[in-house]
């Protein structure tokens, strides 16, 4: 079973993401901010990271940069799921090493299509 790290400071968003992914058979690990996600990514291997951008302690783009410098996460798909939709922010996400940029709110079937496409 593939493991997905779902990162969002909103409990309701984490719940919606987890509901969608678990329903499709994925194991979901949750984190409330970038720092907690980084700690969990170091402690256990995940197959995909799905992260919010605006979070306390560590934002999504900083998380991507930190993950890319970790052994084992150079090629792991990382998707940013955020309300931010500006071209400038997307470019920053791409430069940091994100695999894709999804603007909230997400449609469960479309999210699953993307996850299946990028996950190993």
């Amino acid at each position: 079973m593939h493991s997905i790290l779902a990162v969002d400071d909103s409990a309701s968003m984490r719940q919606m993401v987890a509901f969608t992914l678990k329903g499709a058979g994925y194991n979901v690990i949750e984190a409330a901010d970038g720092q907690e996600a980084l700690d969990k990514a170091k402690a256990e291997t995940v197959d995909l990271v799905l992260t919010d951008q605006n979070m306390p302690r560590m934002d999504g783009i900083t998380l991507v940069q930190n993950l890319r410098s970790l052994a084992g996460y150079a090629a792991t798909p990382i998707l940013i799921l955020t309300t931010e939709s500006s071209a400038e922010m997307k470019a920053k996400g791409k430069a940091a090493g994100a695999t894709g940029w999804l603007v909230k709110p997400f449609d469960p079937s479309k999210l699953l299509d993307v996850v299946r496409k990028v996950i190993r």
């Binding site: 309300t83 695999t99 999804l102 603007v103 709110p105 990028v118």
Partner: peptide, 16 residues
């Protein structure tokens, strides 16, 4: 401004 959406239809998807 972090939120530009004015409705709850699903947002865009970009794969790099």
């Amino acid at each position: 401004q972090p939120v530009r959406q004015a409705e709850m239809s699903s947002g865009s998807i970009d794969l790099f």
